[in-house]
């Protein structure tokens, strides 16, 4: 077989877009889906993870249900659920662009995993920290805000790094509802050009580069917020 990378500069048929332009735009969609979903995942994951450690049994129970629900259904099924089922049951959501639905699906799916990490982080702190906060006259929310969470978030940075890398990889599942992201591009460009190996190599390379950059960003963040005297602050 012979290599042919020339087709990347060829027109896709609309007179102005080349395959390489299409791929860059697909990369942008991958970044947009993963980035927005990460914000959702972090927000809900932090809240749900924290609630799982509070003394109130109802709140902790509800948070547990959240985690079990989103962890035990395959991501692809959850995406179909958000894309086909929820708009059918709640008609006003039919106007919402599919991008938003995919972000919700991927975000909530990942939030369950983030919540697991946050819970583990809070529970890894010694009981004395919580007691010390309460003994100082802080209320329980204040103890969380000023004592427990600032420590817990630093401790869980390494597992959160792998979740952030996972969300980029998992965004590939959005191909199933025709979001024009990298995997969708790979499938369509492969079909149109028959240069599957070149297309897949380029797309795979972009995924690896993206996850590596995220990994480095988190490593930088980790070194900036390291807690002196804690192993968990380091690498």
């Amino acid at each position: 077989m012979t290599w042919d990378w020339q087709f990347f500069l060829k027109d896709i048929g609309d007179g102005e877009t080349r395959y390489v332009d299409w791929m860059i735009s697909a990369w942008g969609w991958t970044l947009a889906v993963s980035g927005c979903a990460w914000v959702v995942a972090l927000l809900f994951g932090a809240v749900v993870g924290t609630l799982r450690t509070v003394p109130n049994r109802w709140l902790a129970g509800a948070a547990n249900v959240w985690v079990e629900l989103f962890r035990n259904i395959p991501l692809l099924v959850q995406i179909f659920l958000w894309y086909f089922v929820i708009p059918a049951i709640i008609p006003p959501l039919q106007q919402v662009p599919s991008f938003v639905m995919v972000v919700a699906a991927l975000g909530f799916f990942t939030s369950a995993r983030v919540a697991e990490q946050v819970r583990a982080g809070i529970q890894s702190l010694s009981r004395g920290q919580r007691n010390a906060g309460l003994a100082l006259g802080l209320t329980l929310p204040q103890t969380y805000r000023f004592v427990l969470l600032p420590m817990a978030f630093r401790i869980v940075l390494p597992p959160l790094t792998s979740e952030a890398m996972n969300i980029i990889k998992n965004s590939s599942v959005a191909f199933a509802v025709s979001i024009s992201e990298l995997t969708m591009f790979a499938m369509q460009a492969q079909e149109e050009t028959s240069r599957g190996i070149e297309v897949y190599l380029a797309v795979t390379g972009l995924y690896i580069v993206t996850t590596m950059v995220v990994n480095r960003l988190f490593a930088f963040l980790e070194s900036r917020v390291r807690v002196p005297g804690y192993v968990g602050g380091g690498k």
């Binding site: 965004s171 590939s172 995997t183 190996i197 995924y207």
Partner: peptide
């Protein structure tokens, strides 16, 4: 490390393309 940094869907597509090849 390579397998772990590529999305599973891409790996599925790769093998589907490469095995017949």
């Amino acid at each position: 490390n390579t397998m772990r940094s590529v999305p599973l869907v891409m790996v599925i597509l790769w093998f589907f393309l490469l095995i017949p090849f």
